[in-house]
């Protein structure tokens, strides 16, 4: 079986280049690495959290070519040539509504929450078809009961400057 030959000769690091938070990055990645681990343990960007490793909680949400994805389900080699943005790329000043409306408590879900929320804010047209609650459903939060999060998104959408980014 080919699988066995693979154990005997595991592939060494795969060289990849991608754009991370606006800057080009080149590195060799373990073929088995998830984007989440590469970000956290290889690139020391620990803002992105692991809450489940099964795509359920959204704590690991990053943007891949501008769209939110769960980085625990992305093999790192797949981001070659793509744009990856993490919570570290967000403008702190833009997070004021989240601070004001109680969007965070323990904070473990928060980086993922603000990533999805900021994406909604940049795409207000989505609200013609989707509710904030539906769009946020991939980000589990055990602390806030979601009102603080939903209110923050609604507030953020009211502020000038929302919907500015095109992806």
């Amino acid at each position: 079986m080919n699988g066995h030959s693979a154990i005997r000769n595991p592939q060494s690091a795969i060289p990849i280049t991608f754009t991370l938070n606006g800057k080009p990055v080149s590195l060799g990645v373990d073929p088995a690495a998830r984007l989440l681990d590469t970000l956290r343990y290889q690139l020391a960007l620990t803002g992105t959290k692991e809450g489940c490793g099964e795509g359920e909680c959204g704590a690991c949400t990053v943007y891949l070519d501008g769209v939110p994805v769960n980085s625990c389900l992305v093999p790192t080699y797949q981001v070659r040539g793509q744009r990856v943005e993490t919570v570290e790329s967000l403008e702190p000043g833009a997070l004021e509504p989240f601070e004001r409306c109680g969007a965070t408590q323990c904070g473990a879900c928060t980086p993922g929450v603000v990533m999805t929320a900021s994406w909604i804010r940049e795409h207000p047209e989505l609200l013609a078809t989707h509710s904030i609650r539906e769009l946020m459903a991939g980000n589990l939060c055990r602390c806030t009961g979601y009102d603080g999060i939903v209110d923050s998104v609604a507030e953020a959408l009211r502020e000038p400057g929302s919907g500015k980014r095109d992806t």
Binding site: V67, P68, V69, V74, T116, L135, A137, G138
Partner: peptide, 9 residues
């Protein structure tokens, strides 16, 4: 299907 993060991928 899942939520937006899953639908996107």
């Amino acid at each position: 299907v899942g939520a937006i993060q899953i639908q996107a991928r």
